[in-house]
């Protein structure tokens, strides 16, 4: 569904992306893993057209993303940045409603309200809907941002470290919500630092290192002790728990 071809980006002499080519399968969860500074966020931003690459291109359903008009792209692809600090004093419901902007340009219809209501419930925000963002905890704000992103209802949803600030229960819940939306035809690319979340929830893994694709494939093919140890340059052991691979490092 998303195909990046030979993406290269150099910023003041540093190669951030070096001929990165990836394929993101439709209707699946793709986890983007790799050590800090591997270029995961930059790849995500480049795919979403927030950062412009020096060369190479990104195709969405075989169409170059540069051919999409702004709102059209926003209806097909959404991205949640890792450090999305919102300074505005907005109510949760208002923020989530702005997710509908690419669809309605601010003129809300009853169907928009239905989407917003549903997403608020999905993220357990219905009780907080009338609260201002600056009265919420970090995790609640993160959920509000995620909810806005999901209200955008794009086919491809890119999430950069969405588990930040979320406690165990909400982290697990988010991944279940992601799976639920895959069932409704969505495609996800999620930057994950916890390999075990990748093992449990991802169908496909892209491993990046030093601005290049280190390995890509089915989750089972990436979960290989040698490969992961090389990727992170640290010993990683894989054990099976209830039939699922778990990566251990200590």
């Amino acid at each position: 569904m998303i195909r990046a071809v030979d993406l290269t980006l150099t910023i003041s002499g540093h190669t951030i992306l070096n001929k990165v080519s990836v394929d993101v399968p439709k209707n699946k969860v793709t986890a983007l893993i790799g050590p800090n500074g591997a270029g995961k966020s930059t790849l995500l931003h480049t795919i979403a057209r927030l950062t412009k690459q020096d060369s190479g291109q990104v195709l969405l359903d075989n169409r170059s993303i540069t051919d999409f008009e702004n709102k059209e792209l926003a209806r097909h692809m959404s991205i949640l940045r890792q450090d999305s600090a919102i300074g505005s004093r907005l109510k949760v419901r208002d923020l989530v409603s702005f997710g509908r902007y690419p669809h309605n340009q601010g003129r809300h219809s009853a169907s928009d309200d239905l989407v917003v209501d549903k997403v608020l419930v999905d993220f357990e925000l219905d009780a907080l809907a009338e609260r201002f963002l600056d009265t919420l905890s970090g995790g609640q704000r993160q959920r509000a941002l995620l909810a806005m992103n999901f209200a955008q209802d794009a086919e491809a949803i890119l999430l950069d470290e969405p588990l930040n600030n979320l406690d165990l229960s909400h982290a697990r819940q988010l991944m279940h919500t992601v799976k639920h939306y895959v069932g409704r035809g969505k495609t996800f690319v999620v930057v994950l630092h916890d390999l075990n979340y990748a093992a449990r929830y991802a169908d496909h893994i892209i491993a990046m290192k030093q601005g290049e694709v280190f390995a890509a494939g089915d989750t089972s093919s990436i979960f290989n002790e040698g490969l992961l140890s090389d990727l992170y340059e640290t010993p990683i052991e894989i054990v099976k728990v209830n039939g699922l691979p778990m990566a251990l490092s200590y």
Binding site: L50, N70, A74, R75, S78, G87, S88, G99, Y101
Partner: peptide, 21 residues
């Protein structure tokens, strides 16, 4: 342009994610 200005106040990346010029 109230909505557009509010979206712009969310920051450049967020605004562009929502398709705002």
């Amino acid at each position: 342009l109230a909505d557009q200005f509010t979206i712009a106040s969310l920051g450049e990346d967020q605004a562009r994610n929502l398709g705002l010029n």
